[in-house]
Nucleic acid binder design. Structure first.
Lengths: 335, 335
DNA sequence: CTGAAAGCGCTTACAG
DNA sequence: CTGAAAGCGCTTACAG
């Protein structure tokens, strides 16, 4: 069975391929009569345009890429789900499709960024921007429209991004802990290479500063953003007999690990150790004890980022802009 | 700045485009000398093949689609994360990319299946197959390779699929509840249109049968697979003064809703009401109380399905086959 | 309102 | 080992 192409349709109706194309796209007026005949033939033949050919000819794919975290992180942290669904809902509205790339850069196999850039996408959403992010550099060089989900390390004035004001979020959370009498607060941050981590640290330090308190450099630790690392790192801290009375973590997943370590060591939460996390994903209200967490409005961030990207792709926005979403602290049992 | 194409490279080196193509793909032997010059030019010019053009010419996209649930469901249930990461990891290994489609079929806008089928993908993974699934029909007609994540309603002998033995899982779970003395067990199932729901019900009924017990038809209720529906439906059941002493739910998300209703109504779990769910996602061990759940090995299912699909696409498998993954019951506090 | 034709940028028999 | 050329199936100025 031969493939049904635009020519099959054109021949059957007795018009040119161009006419069929125009009738289908509506980019030119076609007489009602001809149009009807074409639509009929399309139905009869069950013709569907080959999208790859269309993409090549029109230089447009109606597809957007989402450069996400590692699969291990995706698996554990439903923060991703909120971003993803925000993105999906907007793209659906705007008639775009989504390609999801997980981050395997730490892999041996290492799918280099180059590989990605050759993909047929109109633009890309980049989660977790890093310091000196190679991927961003490449996207820039190639002139692929992109929007950061997060804050860029530099050139903030020249890049499109949407982020939560996580600095203010941490500032408020640490202030809150200080107001509760805590003086020694551990910051269990994510990898230093992420701008996200940096922004958290800034808020954390500022809170100490503004309260006239010194902040112990040893109180800041970096772990990968997975539960196991939170668990192990905190177990070690406990064994080193930390005199901290509170901890604030990079995300909810790490907090779950931390709380597991605390339970293992029979440390009472929140009386001996208060725990605050960021993300406010489902687990924070389901965990025992429930976890105080900074809500970052991930769904909103995802949808705003997708909207921005589509606007940039379609040149409805041409001056770099960004949006910073406010956070709020959801107080629960762990603090 | 003009776009750098294969011709740009060919001209600079002084060979034909064909030679460049072969040198890059390795599909034909090219003299070491020429090849080196080509590679050098590629580097200098920073040439990257246009994938859309390649796709069109080679009739291959190295892309696979994942037809998932509604975004609301994705947002709440990290079961999806496990499937997704299993799929992603295998595809990465096999050099395929992933396109994610959420299910908006219940939407007013209703992106019809037709729309999807025109997408440039080599094959598709379909989650949550339904009874009389229109989408599957279309994929079939179009001869697009597909693998079901779940069991097909019919033609099981002619379709590729991977599923967990959820019937056995429910059978075991209900047996377990019966052995604990429960006689009136509610099945809070998913929508009847899903084959998944059907398979659960079969296991549920069989357990009653094999224990010589009658199963009250009113004990089976259908809800959408989101927390809110589990909550509302169970609240209603409680108000109707059900004499059930146990409930088994379609998934973990619904169970969370059910448990919330129980807490609201101050019904003791597990003494007044035992709860068993399916999915064994992170929340089941984090919830208070922890939730007894049927582990379906979602990550394994996702990865096996992706492997199968790639094998089908690459014609390394040509006879319909399927794999049924065993489940196991993870006993916890809720039962 | 409609058509002929060039063009999108690759791949791949085919011929040498 | 290398090249000329057709072909993938669309879209879109351009001309009428």
């Amino acid at each position: 069975m031969k493939k049904i192409t635009i020519d099959t349709v054109a021949k059957r109706v007795g018009v040119s391929a161009a006419t069929v194309s125009y009738a289908l796209s509506g980019k030119k007026k076609i007489s009602a009569e001809t149009k009807e005949k074409i639509l009929e033939a399309v139905k009869e033949l069950d013709y569907r345009p080959d999208i790859t050919a269309r993409n090549l000819a029109s230089n447009k794919t109606w597809t957007v890429g989402l450069y996400a975290s590692s699969t291990q992180n995706i698996r554990e942290d439903s923060f991703f789900n909120n971003i993803l669904t925000g993105v999906l809902d907007v793209l659906h509205e705007r008639n775009y499709q989504l390609m999801v790339y997980a981050d395997y850069s730490s892999d041996s196999k290492g799918s280099s960024p180059e590989f990605r850039l050759t993909q047929p996408i109109d633009g890309v959403l980049i989660m977790n921007p890093r310091i000196n992010d190679v991927y961003i550099e490449h996207v820039k060089e190639r002139n692929i429209p992109y929007v950061l989900i997060g804050t860029p390390e530099k050139d903030a004035g020249e890049t499109y991004f949407v982020d939560s004001d996580i600095t203010a979020g941490y500032y408020a959370a640490v202030n809150y802990l200080i107001s509760k009498g805590h003086r020694n607060i551990i910051l269990m941050n994510g990898p230093a290479e992420y701008v996200q981590s940096e922004n958290r640290e800034i808020g954390y330090r500022q809170a100490f500063l503004d309260n006239g308190l010194a902040c112990d450099e040893h109180s800041i630790v970096h772990v990968r953003m997975v539960e196991e690392d939170g668990y192990r790192a905190f177990l070690q801290l406990l064994q080193e007999k930390t005199n901290a009375t509170a901890v604030i973590t990079f995300n909810d997943t790490i907090a779950v690990g931390v709380l597991r370590a605390l339970r293992d060591q029979k440390v009472n939460v929140p009386h001996k150790m208060a725990v605050v996390s960021a993300g406010n994903t489902m687990i924070t209200r389901i965990h025992n004890p429930t976890i105080t967490s900074i809500d970052m409005n991930a769904y909103i961030i995802g949808s705003k980022a997708a909207e921005l990207l589509v606007d940039v792709i379609e040149k409805r926005r041409m001056q770099p802009s960004h949006e910073i979403i406010q956070t709020h602290l959801e107080e629960r049992e762990s603090s």
